[in-house]
Design a binder for these strands. Structure first.
Lengths: 202, 202
DNA sequence: ACTATATTTAACCAATTGGTTAAATTATAT
DNA sequence: ATATAATTTAACCAATTGGTTAAATATAGT
């Protein structure tokens, strides 16, 4: 593993866990087992290193989800697949939602730039492929007329909000001593699919 | 205005804008026009002052929304009112969603404690009143059988996600040169109400 | 072998910042 | 009026931390 790769790996681990401001350059250097000066040698500044990591994480999420809406399946099936895959992805990478949310909470400049670059490069454009698929579904009367932009926001918000707000939500859910997180997340998939697909039926 | 009030007012303004870590004690002191030592004299530490502010903000949001689901209206009307009021509240206090999100992004310890205290005091318990209302609506067949906990999460996520993710979403929405934020937010209310109420119709 | 270039290290620096303290001022009670 | 307690101020402190630098070491090209 080259020094640069060691840095990126360590930086990703720690930025994902602690965000931009919670992460210290020395901590990344320690984890990568290299001298702190190497961080600046390879990546100039903390912000640049962070932006680098953000882009990798962002790509990882959006590339996979983007593809779903370019398939030949029915729109209903696509939404079904989307919810399952998105929530599974979060379950397997539980740090990702908070990582992105923290970035947005800082003002989201890095996120906005990453997004702009993705649009310019015409890459992994989830919003675009979703909106094309949804428009088509409206035209072919698979679903009733809805604004695809709003539908996408509702879908994303429904999937991700639990994981963002979990520190507070879990206080309430744990009032029930038999509460089981794993089971609840699986129910969550079905409830989202049920309510939303039902809500847009023609 | 007493020194203590001046501090709280200034702290609220700045914490709301910049979050815990973005806010400097000196900045609060300057805005309140008092000596920095007074902050510690009245509130001991930055964290304690922050927690104080968080509780005030949190109460402000949840008290108003809580009441909706204690009314005698039909559940459908209550949901309608909730979406309109919640989104209006955010429009009038645009810093609030990011403020709470930033707190959750830091781990949400302060948020969790505030929430626990609210439960213990049996105060402004939005989740409780919502779940009672939704259960009742299921039993009286006003809506089809859904898990009220999931419905609440879907509802909150749908309302708030746009404002959280706006730095990214707006990059995409602004591709359309005629995009109008004010109009879009009003549409957002109706789309949420339409899709969700339709989704839970018996 | 020698030179130029790239990489690595350890020591250092300047700025920031939450918090403290001792002395000064003001308010309160007797 | 005087003692006591509460409030306010200015100066100070220690720790943190992103970033720099000059010298040392390794690598590659000729």
């Amino acid at each position: 593993m080259s020094t640069e790769e060691k840095i990126l790996q360590a930086a990703m681990d720690i930025f994902l866990e602690k965000g931009l401001h919670g992460t210290k350059m020395q901590e990344i250097a320690d984890k990568a087992e290299i001298n702190k000066a190497m961080l600046h040698y390879y990546f100039r500044s903390k912000e640049k290193l962070y932006a680098h990591v953000f882009e990798i994480v962002f790509k990882h999420v959006f590339e996979e989800l983007h593809q779903i809406f370019t398939s030949e399946e029915s729109f209903e099936t696509q939404v079904h697949t989307f919810v399952n895959k998105y929530i599974d992805l979060i379950k397997n990478n539980p740090r990702i939602p908070l990582f992105i949310i923290r970035e947005l909470g800082q003002g989201g400049e890095v996120a906005a730039n990453t997004f702009k670059n993705a649009i310019a490069a015409e890459n992994y454009m989830l919003p675009h492929s979703f909106i094309v698929a949804a428009k088509n579904a409206v035209e072919t009367k698979q679903i009733k007329p809805v604004d695809p932009r709003h539908l996408l926001i509702t879908l994303l918000g429904s999937c991700v909000f639990f994981f963002i707000a979990e520190p507070m939500i879990s206080v309430f859910l744990n009032n029930d001593p038999s509460f089981n997180r794993e089971m609840f997340i699986n129910q969550r998939k079905n409830e989202i699919i049920n309510v939303l697909l039902n809500g847009i039926k023609p």
